[in-house]
Amino acid sequence: MSDTRRVLFWRHGRTAWNVENRFQGQTDIELDRTGHAQADRAGRLLATMEPDAIVASDLRRAADTAGYLGRATGLRIEFDKGLRERFGGSWEGLTGVELAERWPVEHARMDIPDGESISEVGDRMQAAVDRALARTPDGGLLVVVSHGAALRVAISRMLGIPDEQREILGPLSNCCWSVLRQHRGMWRLMEHNAASLPEPVVLSDDA
């Protein structure tokens, strides 16, 4: 296994439900006009990093976001259902205020009574990223286009952070990304919730 591969985790652009603070889950919501503009800008920017592979959730908001990068690079996009957002059951479509009123205890813990558990999300996200990495060349850059909650769990898993401590990582904003890089057999977080290209590191902490 290469010790120089990178994975860029990219959240989809904005949707109307993002604006309304509605729990999207696996409801197939489209990007709004701002979301398309965000994905166009970010896609052209990320293309300059010369990714080697792109894999995306098949939900439209992620698939359409990935499409901007695919067109900018000429790369074929692979779609993997394992990269979908956390299934929210009866929470999907409700606002944060409504959830807090109806399920105050569960909402505070983000414990969805009839939804998917965080461990289940982590297992399928980790498997999907592993499948994509197996198709990524040594020294290459893999772009994973997915959803806010699912991405935070995936990043935590790769960094060895327990699922219940995933909130150590701040959330990802619409169309922002995080970059992980392999170093001596482990993954390092190089950028988080970024919207600009990473600056080169002149001196490492173990130089």
Results as ranks from 00 to 15, higher is better:
202 V>I: 14
53 A>Q: 07
121 V>A: 01
68 Y>C: 02
42 A>N: 09
130 D>F: 08
143 V>Q: 00
135 R>K: 14
59 L>N: 02
95 T>N: 07
21 N>Y: 13
36 H>A: 11
135 R>A: 15
120 E>Q: 14
27 T>C: 12
117 S>F: 05
66 A>T: 02
61 R>L: 05
181 R>P: 02
7 V>N: 00
113 P>G: 09
204 S>I: 08
113 P>Q: 08
27 T>W: 11
195 A>E: 13
123 D>L: 13
78 E>H: 13
30 E>V: 10
173 S>T: 10
90 S>T: 15
40 D>P: 01
76 R>T: 15
66 A>L: 06
198 P>T: 00
139 G>C: 06
118 I>P: 10
63 A>P: 00
175 C>I: 02
94 L>A: 12
98 E>W: 03
109 R>I: 02
39 A>Y: 04
105 V>L: 12
77 I>V: 15
109 R>G: 03
181 R>W: 02
61 R>H: 06
175 C>W: 01
172 L>S: 00
120 E>G: 12
203 L>P: 02
14 R>D: 10
30 E>C: 08
158 M>T: 05
150 A>M: 06
162 P>I: 08
98 E>D: 12
153 V>M: 13
180 L>V: 06
124 R>Q: 07
55 V>C: 08
145 V>G: 00
123 D>A: 14
37 A>P: 04
183 H>L: 13
173 S>D: 15
26 Q>I: 10
103 W>K: 04
60 R>W: 11
130 D>K: 11
95 T>I: 06
156 S>E: 03
98 E>N: 05
8 L>N: 01
106 E>R: 03
75 L>N: 04
47 A>D: 01
190 M>A: 14
146 S>F: 00
54 I>M: 05
178 S>M: 00
198 P>G: 01
102 R>I: 12
74 G>K: 08
167 E>A: 12
70 G>E: 03
88 G>R: 02
46 L>F: 02
175 C>S: 15
17 W>A: 06
85 E>P: 04
13 G>A: 07
2 S>E: 09
157 R>K: 12
71 R>T: 11
196 S>D: 14
24 Q>T: 08
66 A>D: 01
109 R>K: 14
2 S>P: 14
192 H>G: 05
122 G>N: 10
153 V>K: 00
84 R>A: 10
88 G>P: 07
192 H>E: 05
105 V>T: 14
107 H>T: 12
129 V>G: 03
69 L>D: 04
189 L>M: 13
82 G>N: 01
202 V>K: 12
31 L>S: 00
